[in-house]
Structures are given as C-alpha cells and as structure tokens.
Design a protein around this nucleic acid. Structure first.
Length: 451
RNA sequence: GGCCCUAUCGUCUAAUGGUCAGGACAUAGGCUUUUCAAGCCUAGAAUCCGGGUUCGAUUCCCGGUAGGGCUACCA
C-alpha cells in the first residue's frame, strides 16, 4: 500500500477544459483521495505563445463546477527560478549542454515559430528505458532514436520535458496518472529524473477519450468545454459519475455511484486499456437518474436558470409544475422546449387556438357526447372548493363520472379543453396547475366552440 | 515511414483456462393506459483473422489486420 501518495493534474492552458482533461483529473484525484494523499493542480504554461489566462480560468472554473478539489495550486510561469537552477545543475554535471543549431528546414513547423541559434539539449545516454505502467505493465523503449532532445530554449525558457520532471520531483509526486498520449514521453522524462538523481514516480497511463470517429478527443474533434454541459443543463454529479465509468468499472454492476462510492471502489488495475467513446446519450440517462433522485428544493434551485422568464421558480405555480417537469426531461435545458410552442407544457402560459374536432375522442367521435361530458365535468369542478382543487381532489371528483361514461370519452375532451393540446400531462394535473377559475373558463370556451 | 499502445454486442463494459459469453445505454416489440412520457417485461445484437500451447481458450504465446498515440525550439 503506497504511503503519502501525491498526484497531480497538469493541464496546459492552451484550450478549453473538456471531458478528456476532466477524466484524467478525476482519476488522479480519486487515486489521491483513496490513499489519503494530496492532489495538486499545476498549470503548465511554459508555452507563452499558446497559453491564455482565459483558459486557465476555464480550468479552475470547470474543476469547481464539477466539485473536484485540489490541495495545492501551482503555475509554472511562477517557477522559472527553479527551472533555471535545474538546467544549471544538469549542465554542470554534463547531462545537458548548450547546442549551436544549424539552420534547418522549418517548413513543417507551426507558423510563427522560429528556430533559435542556440538551445539547451539533454545529453542522451542512449540506453534502454523500462518502466512498469500500473495499467499496462512493462513498457520498454530504446531511447537512442530520441537523440539529444531540447530541454530549454534558453536559461529562462525551459520546455515541457524539463519542467514536468523538475516539478514532479520538487512536488514529491508519487504517482503520475495521465493520458495514454504521454506514454512515449515517459522515457525522456525518466532519463531526466535519472540525470537529476531522483527516483521516478510510478506511472499509470489511462486510455484516451475518443470522439465518434475514434480519434483522440480534442478541440477540433468533437470536444466540448465541460462548462458547456453546465449550460446544457447537466448535473455535475451525473457528469462525474458517467466519466468515472468511462475506462473504469467497479467489480459489481453498480452504475449510479456518488463520488465517495467511486473513491471507495476505485482501483487502477480495473482501468481499461483501450480508448472509450464519449456517448452523450448515456450521459443523458445518468442525468435523468440524478434528476429523479433530487429533492424538490435542490431541483428548484438547479432549474432556476432554465425556466422561462414568466415562470418564477419560487412561485406556487412552479411548485405544482416541478414534479411534472422533472419526469419529462433528461437535462435541464429541455425545460424550455416543454413550454415552447408544441411543448407539452405550453398550455400553462396560454392556450392557443385549436381545431374543434380535437375535442372529439378518436375512438368514439361524438360531438353531443363530448359536449355533455364537458358540461358535466364543468359542474363537478365548479362544485369543488378552492382547497379541494388538488390533482387528487379533482380526480376523485371526476373519476366516477369518467368510469361510468368511458374514460376516453370524458377525459380526452377535457384534456383538449384545458390545454388545446393532444399531448399533455394527466387532465387532473392540468386543471390543478392552471387553477379552478382558468379551468372553468377554458372548458366554457370549449363548450361554446362545440355548441 | 519509425517507435509505442490497443482490440468482447452500434456504444460503455463483465467474465483473467471450463459461463447458455453477463450487465448498462441505445434500438425493436409488448404490458399499463385518457394522450405523451416514465415505469415494467421481452427480443435482436459481440469475443478482428490465422497459427500455436492445452483435455479445454474471450482469457496465455506468436504472426497478421485494424484503430489510436507519439514522432517540435507544443504540452
């Protein structure tokens, strides 16, 4: 059992934080929590041209929304002094040297990049490097083909491999849990650890998250900022749960799990070796599960940004509506469609004009019967006190009549009279939602349309 | 091209030598029913191919194929 586990998530602020980045952070964090260790967030912003504060803010914001807490925060641009010392040490010990560059063809380099005349290179011992990946087992590389790779552009401009190793050593990282795309970076980094005289940490390379075409999830390949899921109305706990199950699976078939349950059940040797496609359909299912389990109070709070302007979440009307809304949607952003034209709850705000023939029950269309039933139901409703006008109260008042005359014959015209729609909640619920006065008014309108 | 990683239903996955290859999402059908959902039930759907090893391979080994990653003075 590892002691004093320290893990880190080390994103570069060169793009929005997406599901792939998030899952990497999640696994690192879970592993630290499980072992009572520390989880560090380290912003790798050594590439000054591509790093943006905006992206750093997005990473922090995303982590916060999703509820992933880190114990320490670092930014590599604040640590250049440390890197300079390390470069110095490596040069003094002969592990690195100042290299005069011969101009090369820069045609295949990203635009705007210029080759320097001098860079600092690592003196590659050209050996075989072997490490035991906690997920994949033994991995072997011959580093000869790597050559003397660059570790800094100048004393003040260290580059990826150097800063990663210096920081991991300095922060006492014991387990590096990162994406599979870093496997081939690992031998270089181990070489630097050795040159620095530091024991390399344990490595665990998790499989990549893939987009629909099975390519690595990236900005230009279907990756969406994780905060976009917030605006699409997903619950953070659903996103956490779903992502934890992408590439990992508990030993039982349990799927709905809280973060703490996941921490309890997690183990690196149950992590999958192959990449996984992110499937929003299944995320929706998870979200619905969490929505269904939510208390009314929490649901009201979560729904607030998504309800139409005329409907306030604190209102009596919303309280009546909320159980219906909850069962009809899979994410909160579906709420708008419910109330929009054609939506099942459009009738709440206003009843639109409808074709009078809709008032006839399809299975037994009979105009005079519909008229008779509507009148009867109208009387039953108007006989109810305002207090008795709950969905249950309405049902017990109308049900015997509906049973006696055919449920469809009675209830269908009532539904259409109340809503002007063919699809709606139960008519008792509809009447309860819009209230006695409005219900009677709409039924009267229907009666006059038919008559 | 070179190096590395991977390979079970459409998707996420279970089963680490012996199971009718299990579950979930999605799909189809059914039940329920006053509509639509939800819910419940049922069905179809997979071990990439070829060699070994073994009494027996999804599982171990080798080869092929396919996919992916890396191959920067990005991270």
């Amino acid at each position: 059992m590892p002691t004093n586990v320290v893990t880190r998530f080390a994103p570069s602020p060169t793009g929005y934080f997406h599901a792939g980045s998030y899952r990497t952070a999640l696994f690192s964090c879970i592993y630290a929590r499980q072992n009572g260790g520390k989880f560090i967030l380290r912003i790798e912003d050594t590439d000054k041209e591509r790093s943006k504060k905006e992206y750093e803010d997005n990473i922090v914001d995303s982590l916060q929304w999703i509820g992933l807490k880190y114990d320490e925060f670092y930014r590599q641009s604040d640590r250049t002094e440390l890197y300079r010392e390390s470069i110095r040490r490596l040069m003094d010990s002969g592990h690195a040297y100042l290299s005069k560059e011969t101009p090369t063809d820069a045609g295949d380099r990203p635009a705007g990049r210029q080759n320097r005349e001098e860079v600092i290179r690592f003196r590659n011992p050209n050996k075989k490097v072997v490490f035991d990946d906690m997920i994949r087992g033994r991995i072997e590389f011959d580093t000869t083909e790597l050559g003397d790779f660059v570790i800094a552009k100048s004393m003040d401009e260290p580059v990826f491999h150097l800063v990663v190793v210096v920081d991991d050593a300095d922060m006492g990282i014991t387990h590096i849990i990162r994406g599979e795309d870093h496997i081939s970076n690992t031998p270089r980094q181990i070489l630097i650890f050795e040159a620095l005289g530091v024991m390399p940490p344990k490595y665990a390379h998790i499989p990549l998250l893939l987009s629909g075409d099975r390519s690595k999830l990236s900005k230009r390949h279907g990756a969406v900022p994780i905060t976009e899921y917030r605006s699409r109305g997903y619950l953070p706990e659903a996103v956490v749960n779903y992502l934890a199950l992408l590439g990992w699976h508990p030993s039982d078939d349990k799927e709905i799990m809280s973060f703490d349950e996941i921490v309890g059940a997690f183990s690196l040797d149950r992590v999958q070796k192959s990449g996984a496609i992110f499937d929003e359909e299944k995320l929706k299912w998870f979200n619905k599960q969490y929505l269904n389990r939510m208390s009314d109070e929490r649901f009201t709070e979560a729904a607030m940004p998504f309800v139409p302007d005329w409907l306030t979440t604190g209102s009596m009307l919303f309280a009546r509506l909320s159980p219906i809304i909850k069962e009809k949607i899979s994410c909160l952003s579906d709420i708008a469609g419910l109330f929009a034209g054609g939506g099942e709850l459009a009738f709440v705000h206003a009843i639109g004009p409808y074709d009078p023939s809709m008032l006839l029950w399809k299975k037994e269309p009979d105009r005079s019967a519909s008229l008779r039933h509507l009148n009867a139901v109208r009387d039953l409703i108007s006989g109810l006190s305002e207090e008795g006008l709950t969905a249950d109260g309405l049902k017990s008042a109308i049900w015997p009549y509906a049973e006696a005359n055919g449920r469809g014959n009675v209830l269908w015209p009532l539904r259409v009279a109340l809503t002007g729609q063919e699809r709606s909640p139960d008519p008792f619920v509809c009447a309860y939602i819009i209230g006695k006065e409005e219900s009677l008014k709409r039924i009267d309108d229907a009666i006059s349309v038919l008559g």
